[in-house]
Nucleic acid binder design. Structure first.
Lengths: 195, 195, 195, 195
DNA sequence: GATGAATGAGTTTTCATTCAT
DNA sequence: AATGAATGAAAACTCATTCAT
């Protein structure tokens, strides 16, 4: 019984989350009102508040979900990276996967800005950001074990993802991800940096 | 007389722009109301409307200003890049200059998101983004004329600037810009990519 | 079985009443929601409604309880007033007892104001108020049988109780109840009022 | 010019204050919404907020006004108390004046309860309450200079005012203020209290 | 040029109450 | 007896914008 009720709750929370995320990604976090969300989910404002006692809570949960999603994507990549594919091919796939999730990306951005003026949210992003860096590093260590600067490379990859994401969202021409991947992999394999 | 008035107008517009930009960078574009701005500039709301017929216009002007500022920064770097300094040193300076302008960066981000749901703004950003890429490429061609993939490098630099900016704004540990610069320069100088 | 259920019902009603009274005294009748109460009693809102079909009913019951409590306190005093203690000493005890029940007093006040805009509640308060006056008069007739103006004194005592209660609740300095008691008793014993 | 504008503001604030006070006295502070007030004053909700940025501010101002009014009433009594009227007559007038202002009284009560859970308001009431005690004492010293316990009497008067006010508001029978006044004055004049 | 008063549509939030289970 | 999901009406509050002066 307890389980059943919780199930309903969970399903509803998910419906709300899903729809809210969609709306926010389409029009931006602060351009979406709770009325909009309630309307879209076809529940009353009261019900929305039954599940989320404040807009902030809702946004936080969406951010959670969005971050988990990205983490999972990167994790999957790391797992797959055992396979026998060329490193640059694999790297290209990371970029691709993340950028393809355009909608995810957009809300990701919105939420990050939200985080700039919200401490609890910011802390979560920091945690997760560090985790992503680690995951990417793990992946690199697997696909380019002989890479000399995998840690640097991981940082560059993660950082440039944001730039490429932004380019994509703005509708600029698609960055040549295959060449970029090749470039970065070669860099890592090239003779040591003279100190 | 016409000139005189225009002068006052310009000065006042600048005061408004300057203050509004500061507020928006501190708390985000959509968290700042026109009342807040009017109060901070110490003019009445009516006066604010005299200079800016809508909030959108004001934001657009701030975006212009912010973009020009960034363009100028990159341009200065390109100009300076003739001097006799090692390429990685110079590259580090670009990163540094841009990231140091933390406050500029923050509003830059806010505005970019604003642009995602505002066509006129988005178009301006696209134009400017392309210009930045060109400028950076120019610079690279000067400091690493023998670089084989300056175009790719320019894209990676510009893209990763956004990621590093975000890291900085979130208060994460400072990225090791000197190593990153070295890494990227070496990459560009390393033996050709086998096609 | 019917009895058993009634017992549970009574116990539950009392738990609700007790907790609700505490909350309302702490933050005021209209600042407490039924959710707050349900949460504090650790029952569901539905259950709360099972016992009290409306917030009004609940408040009414709390008022009943609160009034009964005060009545009882005064009654106890009247009963005790046979004992061989000086009248002013006894009078001081009344004041003291009532004022000491600070928490009771606070909710008493809140409820009285509630009564101002609720006819059924107001009527109950009026009834009870008259009863208190009578009870106090009874007590006075016992401890100061030679008092000439016991009825007036009763009214003054009851009225000033409210003022002193308010003082106490506001955190003002404690009124010198012993001197006040002495003063009032002496007044009652002093040579007749020339008409 | 500056004056003219402030004048309008003042007049409007007064209109709002006056109407809001009336509504609150009729139905209680927490039963009145800002919509109700706006409607009654025939301005928009926005305008109401232009003058009072929060409900709390409005209530605070009404409380201020209400307290000032009571202070003034007591002060006037003190001033008048030089005249050649019997002390009990004068005392009766105080009671009368205050109780007659039924509406003032009701809101006074509501506000006092509001003060119990609002520190800034409570502080103001405490200040004012002390002032009232002083004023009443001044008056007594004038009309009953030979009174032995004017300070005690002042406290009793102030305290019982609240009780009588409550009685009046609840619609109970009018307290016999003339007899009560006589009683209290005689008490004060009667032979000294044996310690 | 400049002001501040006024607005109304919108936002987030609260809450007593109902009801199927 | 008991629950918690759902509701809708109304609350407090925000804000870009208009306008008479």
């Amino acid at each position: 019984m307890g389980r059943k009720e919780k199930k309903t709750t969970k399903i509803n929370k998910e419906r709300i989350l899903f729809t809210a995320a969609r709306l926010m990604k389409e029009r931006g976090v602060s351009n979406i009102s709770l009325s909009d969300i309630a309307k879209a989910v076809k529940i009353s404002k009261g019900t929305l508040y039954y599940y989320y006692p404040s807009k902030h809570d809702l946004v936080f949960d969406i951010a959670e979900q969005s971050m988990n999603h990205m983490t999972q994507k990167i994790f999957q990549w790391v797992e797959k990276s055992k396979e026998d594919v060329s490193p640059e091919e694999i790297l290209k796939i990371v970029f691709d996967t993340i950028l393809r999730a355009k909608s995810r990306g957009q809300i990701h951005f919105y939420l990050m800005l939200e985080a700039l003026s919200d401490d609890s949210l910011r802390e979560r992003f920091c945690q997760e950001y560090a985790k992503w860096k680690e995951l990417i590093l793990d992946g690199l260590n697997r696909i380019i074990p002989q890479g000399k600067e995998n840690s640097l490379l991981a940082q560059i990859i993660l950082a440039s993802i944001y730039g490429f994401l932004l380019q994509t969202l703005l509708g600029l021409e698609k960055p040549p991800l295959d060449q970029i991947s090749k470039f970065l992999v070669m860099a890592d394999l090239s003779p040591s940096l003279p100190e």
